Computed example of a mutant assay.
Amino acid sequence: MNVENRLANKKRRSQKIAFGIFSFTSYSVVALLFVILAFIVVKGIGAISWEFISEMPKNGMTEGGIFPAIVGTLCLVLASMIFAFPIGVLAAIYLNEYVKAGWPKKIIKQMTNNLAGVPSIVFGLFGMSLFVNKLGFGDSILAGGLTLGLLVLPVIIRTTEEALKSVDDTFRQASLALGASKWETTSKIVFPIAFPNIITGLILSIGRVSGETAPILFTVAAYFLPKLPTSIFDQAMALPYHLYVISTSGTNIEASRSMAYGTALILIIIVLISNLLANGLRKYYGKKVKMN
Rank of each mutant, 00 (worst) to 15 (best):
V89W: 04
V89F: 04
V89D: 12
L90D: 02
A91H: 01
A91N: 02
A92G: 06
A92C: 06
A92I: 00
I93V: 06
I93K: 03
I93M: 04
I93D: 02
Y94V: 07
Y94S: 08
Y94M: 09
Y94P: 09
Y94R: 10
L95R: 02
L95M: 08
L95V: 06
L95G: 07
L95Q: 06
N96S: 15
N96D: 15
N96F: 14
N96A: 12
E97H: 13
E97M: 12
Y98F: 13
Y98R: 08
V99D: 13
V99M: 15
K100M: 12
A101M: 12
G102E: 04
G102D: 05
G102W: 07
G102V: 08
W103P: 00
P104S: 08
K105L: 03
K105Q: 13
K106H: 14
I107Y: 05
I108W: 00
I108N: 02
I108P: 01
I108L: 01
I108R: 00
K109H: 10
M111Y: 07
M111C: 15
T112M: 05
T112C: 07
T112F: 01
N113L: 13
N113V: 10
N113G: 15
N113T: 00
N113F: 09
N114D: 12
N114V: 01
N114M: 14
N114W: 15
L115T: 00
L115W: 10
A116K: 08
A116G: 06
G117V: 11
G117H: 09
V118A: 07
V118K: 09
S120Y: 00
S120F: 06
I121G: 02
I121D: 02
V122W: 14
F123M: 11
G124N: 06
L125P: 11
L125C: 12
F126D: 12
F126N: 08
G127E: 04
S129T: 11
S129W: 13
S129P: 01
S129M: 10
L130H: 05
L130Q: 09
F131T: 05
F131V: 10
V132T: 07
V132I: 04
N133T: 09
K134S: 13
G136E: 07
G136N: 05
F137N: 00
F137D: 01
F137Q: 03
F137L: 03
F137H: 08
F137E: 03
G138D: 05
D139S: 07
S140L: 00
I141P: 00
